[in-house]
């Protein structure tokens, strides 16, 4: 089992290590907890407020764990032009999967697009989105 201390050791000597550390902590634990922030701050000689400020600034970092599977649905202009807003009620009509907005996955010519973990999906319609939510 990876510990915060392991992650901190791994990034020792790196220039500007805070973001890589936070990514690894979130990957290992699903979120960046208050305790993790305290430990990271101590190790990098930062204040807890500085680390908290960074964690809260970036959309990717969670302070609390999300137990449900997450689908990131692109709601940016190109996907809007291709009809993503009509899929939003489909996404909101269930609670098993957490559907979050993301602004652009770089699949702008074949939207609506979504990402689950590192998996990308395009040309979504309500049927495909429903299938994706069921299989996630």
């Amino acid at each position: 089992m990876t510990t915060i201390a392991d992650i901190l050791t791994e990034h020792e000597g790196r220039e500007g290590p805070l973001l890589p550390i936070l990514h690894d902590v979130q990957k290992a634990f699903g979120h960046v907890s208050e305790d993790a922030m305290r430990e990271i701050a101590g190790s990098l000689n930062l204040t807890r407020a500085e680390v908290y400020g960074v964690v809260s600034f970036y959309h990717d970092f969670r302070k609390e764990a999300e137990t449900r599977p997450i689908i990131k649905l692109c709601r940016a202009e190109a996907c809007k032009a291709r009809g993503v807003e009509a899929l939003v009620p489909v996404a909101e009509g269930q609670s098993r999967v957490k559907v979050e907005a993301v602004y652009c996955l770089g699949l702008c010519s074949v939207g609506p697009a979504a990402m689950v973990g590192d998996q990308v999906h395009a040309r979504l319609d309500s049927q495909r989105l429903t299938e994706l939510m069921a299989s996630t």
Binding site: G16, P17, L19, P20, L44, V54, Y58, H59, F61, Y103
Partner: peptide, 20 residues
């Protein structure tokens, strides 16, 4: 790797982000 912030595409904001 960035962390989901659009404004980090602005060069000075990107530099701050790189610095952690």
């Amino acid at each position: 790797v960035g962390a989901g912030s659009y404004v980090c595409g602005e060069e000075t904001s990107l530099l701050n982000s790189l610095e952690g």
